[in-house]
C-alpha cells in the first residue's frame, strides 16, 4: 500500500484509540462524585479508611456468624449501618452507583433508599411511592 493509505490508517487508528479522550474533551466535565451523607459525630465500628476498603468483608463475616454460629452482632451488620446511616440512597448507593457495583444485599434485606422511596419496587414513574 501507499504512503497515503498509511497515513489514513494511522490517523484512523489514532482517532479510534483516542476516542474516549476526544469524547471527554467535547462533553461536559463530570461533576458527580460519590457524596456520602455522614452523621454528626459518632464513631463507626471500624475506622473510616478501613471501612472504605473492607466493609463488605465485615458484612459477610457478620452474616456467617449469624447464619452459621447463631451469634448476632447487630452492631456490625446492616442494622448497625442503618442506626447511623438511615437511608442507603445517601450512603451505600452513592459509591456503589458511582463505580457501577451492584449490591445484592437488597434482594433479601431491607434498607430504605430514602425517606420517601422505601425500596426500588415502590418507585413508579410519576407516581408517589
Amino acid at each position: 500500500m501507499s504512503k497515503e493509505s498509511g497515513m489514513v490508517a494511522a490517523v484512523l487508528f489514532l482517532v479510534l484509540l483516542a476516542s474516549p479522550f476526544i469524547y471527554n474533551a467535547f462533553s461536559a466535565p463530570p461533576t458527580h462524585r460519590a457524596e456520602l451523607k455522614l452523621p454528626d459525630g459518632g464513631q463507626c465500628v471500624r475506622d473510616t479508611e478501613w471501612m472504605r476498603r473492607n466493609h463488605m468483608k465485615l458484612l459477610m463475616h457478620t452474616r456467617d456468624d449469624v447464619v452459621r454460629e447463631g451469634v448476632r452482632l447487630d452492631r456490625e451488620g446492616l442494622k448497625g449501618c442503618r442506626s447511623c446511616h438511615p437511608y442507603r440512597g445517601e450512603f451505600c448507593d452513592q459509591c456503589h452507583d458511582y463505580v457501577g457495583m451492584q449490591q445484592e444485599c437488597w434482594n433479601c434485606h431491607f434498607y430504605p433508599e430514602s425517606k420517601t422511596v422505601i425500596n426500588d419496587e415502590d418507585r413508579e414513574p410519576g407516581g408517589t411511592p
Binding site: M1, G6, V8, A9, A10, V11, L14, L17
Partner: peptide
C-alpha cells in the same frame, strides 16, 4: 504512557499500512 502508546501504535500502524506488498 498514554501519549507513548497512542503515538507508538499510530506509528506502527503507519508502517504496516505504508509498506507495499
Amino acid at each position: 504512557v498514554i501519549a507513548l502508546f497512542l503515538l507508538g501504535v499510530a506509528r506502527k500502524i503507519y508502517g504496516y499500512a505504508a509498506t507495499p506488498s
